[in-house]
Amino acid sequence: MADPSLFRLRVVFRKAGRLALLSHLEVARALERAVRRAGLPFAVSQGFSPHMRIAFGAALPVGVGGEREFYDLFLTRYVAPAKCLEALRAGSPDDLMALECAYVEHAAPAASVAYPLSTYRVDLTAPVGEWPVPDAVTVVRKKKEKELAVAEYLAGEMLLADDGRSVMFALEAKPTGSLRPDKLVDACLALMPEKSRPQRAALTRIAQSDGTTTL
């Protein structure tokens, strides 16, 4: 698949504000349109239904924002990263703004699996004294209920901030699947007494890493 004549540009962007409510598919379509508005020399796939050569990082659920999200765009000719960034910024809405551009090697792992470790921060509507974590989370997959063991996906602890208003945690994507950060947070909240239970004010992926390097 890797065509050595193409240039693989990695674009870091944010998913912020009210656009955190977009689905992965909606974000992907919006980014493709931003690339077209930027007028970059993107490559087009061959075949019956030609489309832009673009690959997205690991998906975020509806309602979850990201401070440093990314996609890989294949260009047919070299354009200085600073020029790419300038063009992309002119064609992007503020809440999906491009932040950085850099070329990466063709041999680098595919965008969707490049950074299996995601760090999230959840902001709460009211401070809490402690943060309970369940052993398992029940999710619905293909209309079937399934129990996911939290320990299998949670990397390290869920850390409650000193002011009790936010929690940081990291989740690892497995080849067999992932635990959604919003489902985990909701399961934690469900363990609190209903009276004193706060809500999620915002849930954001703040970093992605492969264990050694961070995006």
Binding site: R18, L19, L22, R33, G63, D95, Q199
Partner: peptide
Amino acid sequence: LRPLLARVERPARYLDHEW
């Protein structure tokens, strides 16, 4: 409106801010 959007299908319908 914002807090209601977590409870409905396709919140993107109600966001505005399109290009």
